[in-house]
C-alpha cells in the first residue's frame, strides 16, 4: 500500500513514452528571423562567405555557422528567449566584419515562435487527449476512494 502513491504519477508519464512510427509530419510556424546581407565596399555581394553567429549568453563560442547565398544573404532565427546583442561575423578571402543585431522585447515573438502548426494532431484531437488524461486521474482517484464510498 505504501507504494500506491506512485500509481497516479506513473499514469502521468505513460503518455510521454515515445511511440516509434514511420509516418511523416510536416509542421510550420511563423518566426522573427534575422537576415543579413554582406557586401564589399564597392557594393559587390560577398558570395559564399563564412558566417558565424554568436548568441548573447556565449560570445566566445559560435551558436551557428553557415554560408551566404549568391547575393550575400544569410538568415537565421535567434532563440527569442535570449535577449541582447546577437553578433554575426562574415568572412571571405581576407575580408571580414562583425555586425551586432539587438534582440529585445521578444516575449510575444517567443510565444508565437514556439508554436509549431500543421502537425499530426487537430485541435479536436488535442482536446480529446487532454480530457482523457484528466479523466485518468479522476478515475484513479475514484478507484482508491471507492471503499470509503461503500462504507458510507
Amino acid at each position: 500500500m505504501r507504494c500506491l502513491w506512485f500509481l497516479p504519477v506513473a499514469i502521468v508519464f505513460l503518455p510521454a513514452v515515445p511511440v516509434f512510427a514511420h509516418s511523416t509530419v510536416i509542421e510550420h510556424r511563423q518566426t522573427n528571423a534575422i537576415e543579413i546581407r554582406a557586401m564589399y565596399d564597392n557594393g559587390e555581394p560577398m558570395t559564399e562567405a563564412q558566417v558565424t553567429v554568436y548568441a548573447p549568453d556565449n560570445p566566445s563560442d559560435p551558436w551557428l555557422k553557415g554560408i551566404t547565398t549568391e547575393d550575400g544573404r544569410f538568415a537565421f532565427v535567434p532563440n527569442p528567449d535570449m535577449e541582447g546583442e546577437w553578433d554575426v561575423k562574415v568572412r571571405k578571402a581576407g575580408h571580414g566584419d562583425f555586425i551586432s543585431v539587438p534582440v529585445e522585447g521578444s516575449q510575444q515573438a517567443a510565444q508565437s515562435g514556439k508554436n509549431w502548426q500543421g502537425g499530426g494532431y487537430t485541435t479536436l484531437q488535442k482536446i480529446l487527449m487532454a480530457a482523457l488524461g484528466v479523466w485518468g486521474f479522476i478515475g484513479t482517484a475514484l478507484f482508491f476512494a471507492r471503499n470509503r464510498f461503500h462504507q458510507t
Binding site: 502513491w5 504519477v9 549568453d57 486521474f137 482517484a141
Partner: peptide, 30 residues
Amino acid sequence: VKKELFVTGLFVGIPLLIAGCDTATNNEAT
C-alpha cells in the same frame, strides 16, 4: 490513507500533466 492518495493524485498529477503539455524551451536563459 486513501483520502491522502486521492488528494495526492489530483494535486501532483494534474500539474504534471499541464506541465507536460508545454514544450521545454525556457531552459536557455540569458
